[in-house]
Design a protein around this nucleic acid. Sequence first.
DNA 1: ATCGCTCCCGGGAACGATCCCGAAAATTGA
DNA 2: TCAATTTTCGGGATCGTTCCCGGGAGCGAT
Lengths: 341, 341
Amino acid sequence: MTLDLEDIARLAGVSRSTVSRVLNNRPDVKESTRQRVLKIIEQHNYHPNNLARALVTQRTRILSLVIPQPIVDVFTEPYNPIVIQGVTVEASQSDYAVMLWMGSSTEEEQRFCDRILSNDQFDGLIMISSLADDPIVKRLAQAHFPFLLLGPPPVEGINFINTDNFGGAREAVLHLIDLDWQRIGMITGPETLLAARDRLAGYYDAMQAAGRLIDPALVVEGGYGEAAGYQAMLTLIDRGADAVFVSSDVMALGALRAAQDSGRRVPDDLGIVGFDDIPSAATSSPALTTVHQPIQDLGGVATRTLINILDGSLEEPHQEILPTELIVRETCGASRKGSQH
Amino acid sequence: MTLDLEDIARLAGVSRSTVSRVLNNRPDVKESTRQRVLKIIEQHNYHPNNLARALVTQRTRILSLVIPQPIVDVFTEPYNPIVIQGVTVEASQSDYAVMLWMGSSTEEEQRFCDRILSNDQFDGLIMISSLADDPIVKRLAQAHFPFLLLGPPPVEGINFINTDNFGGAREAVLHLIDLDWQRIGMITGPETLLAARDRLAGYYDAMQAAGRLIDPALVVEGGYGEAAGYQAMLTLIDRGADAVFVSSDVMALGALRAAQDSGRRVPDDLGIVGFDDIPSAATSSPALTTVHQPIQDLGGVATRTLINILDGSLEEPHQEILPTELIVRETCGASRKGSQH
DNA sequence: ATCGCTCCCGGGAACGATCCCGAAAATTGA
DNA sequence: TCAATTTTCGGGATCGTTCCCGGGAGCGAT
């Protein structure tokens, strides 16, 4: 039923090879025959078989996006879908297809890893980075499989695109310090997540830079999810924090709710700054001051970069950190403090 | 570098064919040689080349998930990521890979459609349903490409898995009626989205079943997103609604905020019921009464079903509607009205 | 012994493209 | 006009599997 390369060749009165040349528009074919072949192709709505093509060229024009287990857990956060969107859109612009893998268990991830290293199927992969000692990263690296991490790099010498978690956090905390909050705490993300670590480091750095004492009791691990933020905030209030930097907006929203539920007025009695700038950050009341990261671009840039690496037009390792931006809204108390002057 | 089927054969002292038989564990091979071959395979960590395999079997064990443009717009809603998760997890359990396509423009979707009908690449596809007259659905159907819709079917005779949008909406509105709200309005989703239409139909049906008059002024199109819900609620308050069924939780949350901003107490002055049961519905204050849909399963069931269809173990068209469940929380006023008795 | 049957196994062809190499055709220059 | 180039084209080999078909080994029955 479906047409062959040879069928087209016969119909156009040329050889298989010539049709192939036209398909890959190589220069060494006379313009008139090229047109003739193209017309036949058009007429019969012929599409070359990607499988056969890939079998000989060893390139599938497929790249895969893997979202490891720990990230899947926080998957309802709007971060991942947007990244995915960025990746697929950019990929299909370069005529690449995207295969998606989500870890559901570590065992499952092992199996997946085997599949990667079996070497066919796709040309390269983007993985959302997470753990410090990710075994997959290790295996990929030593197998020299072309890949790129989206997020903080767990080891040296590998390709990655990251957002400036450290710098963003630092700026956020500095902002709270500027506004003259006294006991500034932090709700961190899961300790195993690299991004969470970097944000925590940013907090420390800002505090130190401002000569503030760091009270370990004011740093509590929230984990992820609205409820975790809620709980963490309760302890923080209990321990006398008057402002808190939260490692993610989702948790920050939980923290905000906790503050309100326990009778604190935000931002009058309590300052809050989040991280991510998810859509609902703008519509909470009061609206959440937060660190914006260019999630939109993140996936796109990563994809573009990976493709360039695959083309050989970019030398490895390629490492890039995209800037963040502090979005000042209401919860930090900027307006209040500002008006005091 | 990478090993051949023939290499393994040589090492095991058998023929190519026998190794192939072992690989596909066919019965006609002596147990002792099977073991011998398996050991060699294990030792050399051999994996068969999927491309070559697919080329001859005409099956790639890849299925693709397409999320069309209109859905991408509402992509930040937690619905889609969860569906994706369901699909990928279920797929990899059956040793299928998932390819992901997201429409960014209609032109882009055309190109994608060509790619589908070029017939290699993947075995079947799942598409999140959206528009009433989706051209892609039409082309897929008449090309007899194996596919399944996730959501309401735009035409007859095709495979789909859907949630009971109509029934869920009906139950929600009936609940508001039970609670004796008088002027019950609705904020609908985009009129082009089939799911939104069904929910609207459920509203009408419930109202009629209860013998209520329908005031067209109390049905307003909200579109999607928190802000849309906010705006729509303002008009509805203006027009004297005292309760409203909202087509999605995200909009319902916006509606709630609008109600509170304009001085209404929920649920004392105003009842609200949403649809979806997204995580933040449980944590809003007051907590949102809403219609739960089994998003979790939706993707999984769809995948399972598609795979069965591909295996030929399920006859087409397969059509299935998963039930919803009304989750009564606070915004509907159930507790208040209940305590009046 | 021979036949027939089942159980295992081997090798050729095919899947649908690309790549390489050599030859035919067109072009150039003297 | 003819050799030397350059351009254009054709066919065989190849990628790594599966499928089909046929043949040998082993065994019981005649």
